[in-house]
Design a protein around this nucleic acid. Structure first.
Lengths: 123, 123
DNA sequence: GCAAGTAGTTACCTAAAGGTAAGTATTGAG
DNA sequence: CTCAATACTTACCTTTAGGTAACTACTTGC
């Protein structure tokens, strides 16, 4: 209210706008785990994504200075992606989120269905 | 392929599907900070959101067992929201993300503009 | 001259998400 | 009888996002 507008006073909204989106945190997590991945390798690790959307996400992450794009003009061309120093700062958040995800996944497996039979996919 | 489908083998995608979305992590972070908030209070803290979208986010978070809905049939009715035990498990992730957000915000302020004058809100 | 291979880009179309506004329930005040 | 208040819900419409498929560039191999 006093110096900045009310919707930018909170840095959370800014970072959310950068890393949110259907596949964005997942891409960051992949790069955090595997250090360097080529375009096709990322696409292979995300079954449902299209080249158009993946390109879009990559461009936006690059524009936010979270990933680095390494283009090698070979034939055919090779493009590798990796986290920047800023992108690497998300490491603990990404890994923390993954730990919670794994925990919940185990809990839901105990509660909702037997580990050896598939009942959730029946409906 | 053997027991689970290939897109659910990674718990990250599951948790992302639950907490992702335009305002979802922000709502969780508000409730993590303020413990209990009424519908109108959440709406007031998120300037750009509409009642329809806020209701949708709240319902989905409730369905994921991340928030608790407390309906008091007073006149007019009072509805309060708070994190469930599971939702509270996101505390460190949410706060860690906020710390990174604040750090980046300060860094960007040093790089892109002077700290004492407002140049970003001029346009 | 055509296919293959990588990493895209572009055009076109459809599906989903979100905005706006009005309606719902309840009861006390006027 | 109507207004006001809270927390929605629903209908309708627009905007946006995403899917699909074709095209680009360049060189090797046939």
């Amino acid at each position: 209210m006093t110096a900045r507008n009310d919707h930018t006073q909170c840095p959370m909204e800014s970072i959310l706008g950068q890393i949110m989106g259907p596949w964005t945190p997942y891409i960051l997590w992949l790069l955090d785990n595997e250090k360097t991945l080529r375009f096709g390798e990322i696409a292979a690790r995300i079954p449902g994504i299209s080249a158009k959307v993946l390109t879009d996400r990559l461009r936006k992450l690059e524009a936010s200075n979270l990933i680095h794009r390494d283009y090698r003009p070979t034939v055919p061309p090779t493009v590798s992606y990796s986290l920047t120093a800023r992108g690497a700062e998300l490491h603990s958040v990404l890994q923390g989120l993954n730990e919670v995800a794994i925990r919940w996944d185990e809990e839901d497996r105990e509660t909702q269905g037997a580990p050896d039979t598939e009942t959730i996919a029946a409906g």
